[in-house]
Write a protein that binds this DNA or RNA. Sequence first.
DNA 1: ATTGACATGAGACATGTGTCTCATTTTTCT
DNA 2: AGAAAAATGAGACACATGTCTCATGTCAAT
Lengths: 196, 196
Amino acid sequence: MKSVRKPSNQELRTRKDLLTAASRLMKQGRKPTMDEVAQEAMVSRPTAYRYFRSVDALLGEAPVDAAVVDPTQLFANNASDDPEARLLEAEASMHKTVFENEAHLRVMLANSIGRDLSDDSVPARQNRRMPLIEAALAPARDRFTDGDYEKLCAALALIFGTEAMIVFRDVLRVDETTAREVKSWAVRALVRAALR
Amino acid sequence: MKSVRKPSNQELRTRKDLLTAASRLMKQGRKPTMDEVAQEAMVSRPTAYRYFRSVDALLGEAPVDAAVVDPTQLFANNASDDPEARLLEAEASMHKTVFENEAHLRVMLANSIGRDLSDDSVPARQNRRMPLIEAALAPARDRFTDGDYEKLCAALALIFGTEAMIVFRDVLRVDETTAREVKSWAVRALVRAALR
DNA sequence: ATTGACATGAGACATGTGTCTCATTTTTCT
DNA sequence: AGAAAAATGAGACACATGTCTCATGTCAAT
């Protein structure tokens, strides 16, 4: 049993400074050096390595500024219970933040994909899209069978995230408006299929 | 106008040796060093850099062994004109090669995503999935409006490729069988929606 | 066979990563 | 305030990337 020491205020501050410094530098769309992040955070390089075991780990935890909207907040003033309408709204919000933070998200995604499978130096990827999808579907949850609900959620996850943006940009090479249209169309098609 | 010299046989051989050496090493799921690739190809490191401007460029061009099936070959003995049946077959084939070459494809995808937008050191990503999708839809092409056809193709591209595998594995953390079921379900839903 | 063109190899260099040691500061506790 | 504990900084290290220079090999044509 490993005893977990409570981090001191100083440690928490240093850690936070490193993360925000990394965020600031990543907004330029370039993968910053550990030295650059350390300098930006006014900290020495060894100290940076004391808090994060690699640049990738640090960059992987650096927060995206325009974080995904809080689901409860997004649907607070939207009285509709229609899953289609709610999903389209969620998708619009997600689409906006993904395309606005393309450079930052590219760096993070590249780091999380490229790791060796047995490499725990980069923290497990967190899933911001499922809470959003589930919140959008919540009012109509009982209109789906369990099986359909699971499949719908998973299929929507393919469409909502950064990976879809990569496909549109790098593989399909279409503009953002087209991407938006395709995603809306697909969301509608999927939710209708799940509703029978 | 830059004059283009025809590469000598020796040059073609060296280039090919480097690529196949990279492929061999990448099958281990590890991103090999330029030194390792050079040694495996029995070539010095500077020579490797004479043919590829970076490890990423070399790795990005290294062929995936089980390349995507040739569309014409896949549908040769399948007399069905039903777009749904053909798409499901294409998806099955794509799914197999993607999941069998997961490690290799992860390296390639990470390299192509992470590059700076103005960086041409990594060759532009090639699109192997659209020919497959279009071949699957070809017999029924006139059953779709132009708009629906475009949207269907783009939406299917989100489901067919390596990126979807990443979502299933890293974000959803589901097994391959589940991934397969979700993809089949989504393909059916989308093609039916496009058919009205 | 000899020459000239060209592919290659040996090795050095500048930079980034990640780790280490040791000295110095800063915090914390008494 | 003074001592113990802990965080930090300075600087070195081994290794990978990517770029040089220069010497050597190899091929083709006369």
